[in-house]
Design a protein around this nucleic acid. Structure first.
Lengths: 341, 341
DNA sequence: ACACATCATGTAATCGATTGCAAAAGCACA
DNA sequence: TGTGCTTTTGCAATCGATTACATGATGTGT
């Protein structure tokens, strides 16, 4: 007894109307008469009809789904953003596809095709470090409209994007240290070439300068956003003769790794050095010591990204803003920062 | 100049063969002659042909995508599992859809329909706490084949599943404490009603008994898997007259919260109390103190789940094993556990 | 040279919903 | 009752790939 799902035809037969009418009733209820609307509704209930997405997708040339591309699924930083995206999409009847840019099988080539494949109507990219030929192909007029960057972006390309106030966040961080009395402040950067890394590092250098502080070159530790890199940076800090009393890390993961490695070598935070991160991930508040950080509202980033993308998908002809949408950040002061001993 | 993606027809025209032949060349290359195979390959290259998934999905009645359902996107525990699933799926040309069971809009009703909607060929569920009417509907003969549980499962229902050795992991934990010399051991449980919570709690009680240890009722702290619950449990522990010297938490998040709250009240781990977790999430090694935990290979869980599901999707008639696949766990000893002072 | 098996290819129906166009029905007004 | 307009419905083509079946080409054995 295969419960063979029923089709528009079945509904039409039961309601004694044509399939065209059923289809109209379902997608443009206002154009059919009150009475047929009732008949069809009844027939739908009787037959247990469910629309077949494959058929609709083929006919309408839309997949009703959006691809989200992230550099690394296993990075908790992204999960809240996904949650935000997912909420908005599913409320609008869209599905969310996920793929990772770093996966060997998913060479950039492959990812691009989600769009012309009829597999996704648009994509949200959370990774600014795409290979440039991939970016070029995406910029192709027919596609750029349906691609949006969130958190990160590609310098030079003009895809729509949502991001947080990286410069302002960095400024807040430096000012916080300065207000506490720190004068020797270090920075652990993100990965070379990454747009966030540059935005934050440049803002850091600028702000240090505008406060009239000294910045030795060896107080900038090159790293990437990971825990491990934070540990390495801590080793570098330990090795210094003239140690900064405060360290601004470009991500919370970095900061956690940094603190953790320090503690393994007998240094305590904030007694020996103040440390802060960026992102305010869930764990920041629970770490020991709890981590001062720059908070970005990741749920909101996700929701806005989804909203903007759907706008562009559903009204491809409308004039959309081209400047990036920039969301505010705030400083959350916790135990990892204090005045210098 | 819309680059209008080309279709089978276009390829057929260029290669001067019928669309049927092109289709065959692409999906069953062995049935066409060497020469047409070359002609078609050439034509595909010239036209830049990409298969239209919507069309194929409609015709073949398969969506070539799998839905992964998780209780909470923002929980980092799941991300590595997703990574594992994603690797396998994308290698096989499948897409991965993600949805959250806790989302208001996604009432169970809605989730079920991904399958008969032609939106997904199967689903992997990482949440054992589905409402029972949802489970019932899924058990419907035509669907049960295409649903698989990972990590968690539903007691009584017989969907295929992959999980780790929860009992054995718990036993290892208790034995570890016992070997260190602990005799008063507490347990912070998962959420009431959750299958993992029960598996681990029961195993805990059993193992304590079989080692001949005392277990006071107030040494079992009811919680759920979150950081916050861990903090609360710590407060309960602090409030006890006769404090256990070791605490086994049902998840790493719990353990981190527990330790963190203790530290806020001046207690140190492992000096005042040994603590261990379950899962061995990335952060366990970096926390201060680093966390002893029971390791489950989440990447492997994901890969196996995907493999099993695809087996069932692609060979619906084959006889598949019905007993759960159970993966081994191991104990990773770190700094959060030590002999009692 | 004929009968027959084998292999390669083409023809056309099909999956299920949507939609332009035209026909029919309903309605108002003279 | 007839004319003209609006609203509601049906017909049939369409989206693009797959595949059962038919047809044609090639080859083999006697």
């Amino acid at each position: 007894m295969a419960p063979k799902t029923s089709t528009l035809q079945d509904v039409a037969r039961v309601a004694k109307v044509s399939t065209a009418t059923v289809s109209r009733t379902l997608s443009h209820p206002d154009v059919v008469s009150e009475s047929t609307r009732r008949r069809v509704a009844e027939a739908v209930k009787v037959t247990g009809y469910r629309i077949n997405h494959a058929a609709r997708n083929l006919r309408t040339q839309r997949s009703h789904s959006v691809l989200v591309l992230l550099p690394d699924l296993a990075n908790p930083f992204f999960s809240t953003i996904l949650e935000g995206i997912s909420r908005h999409l599913s409320a609008k009847g869209y599905s969310m596809l996920i793929a990772s840019t770093k996966q060997v099988q998913d060479s950039g080539e492959r990812l691009i095709h989600y769009l012309d494949d009829a597999r996704a109507d648009g994509m949200i990219i959370l990774d600014g470090d795409l290979e440039s030929d991939v970016v070029n192909k995406l910029e192709n007029a027919s596609q750029a409209q349906r691609v949006l960057f969130a958190c990160e972006w590609v310098e030079g390309a003009d895809f729509p994007s949502v991001r947080c106030e990286n410069r302002q966040g960095t400024r807040l961080a430096v000012q916080h240290f300065h207000a506490l009395g720190h004068r020797k402040i270090a920075h652990v950067t993100g990965p070379e070439g990454n747009v966030l890394m540059h935005a934050r590092k440049d803002a850091f250098v600028d702000e240090i300068a505008s406060l009239g502080l000294v910045l030795k070159p060896e107080w900038i530790f090159a790293a990437d956003f990971t825990l491990e890199a934070g540990c390495l940076a801590a080793q570098d800090w330990i090795a210094l003769q003239d140690r900064p009393t405060a360290v601004f890390c470009a991500s919370d993961q970095l900061a956690l790794g940094f603190i953790s490695e320090l503690s393994r070598h007998g240094f305590r935070v904030p007694e020996h050095v103040s440390v802060m991160g960026f992102d305010d991930i869930e764990l920041a508040a629970q770490f020991i010591p709890s981590l001062t950080s720059i908070r970005q509202d990741r749920l909101l980033i996700g929701e806005i990204a989804a909203t903007m993308l759907m706008e562009r998908i559903e009204k491809p002809n409308a004039q959309h803003r081209s400047s990036p949408t920039v969301l505010p950040v705030s400083l959350v002061a916790r135990d990892s920062t204090a005045p210098p001993h």
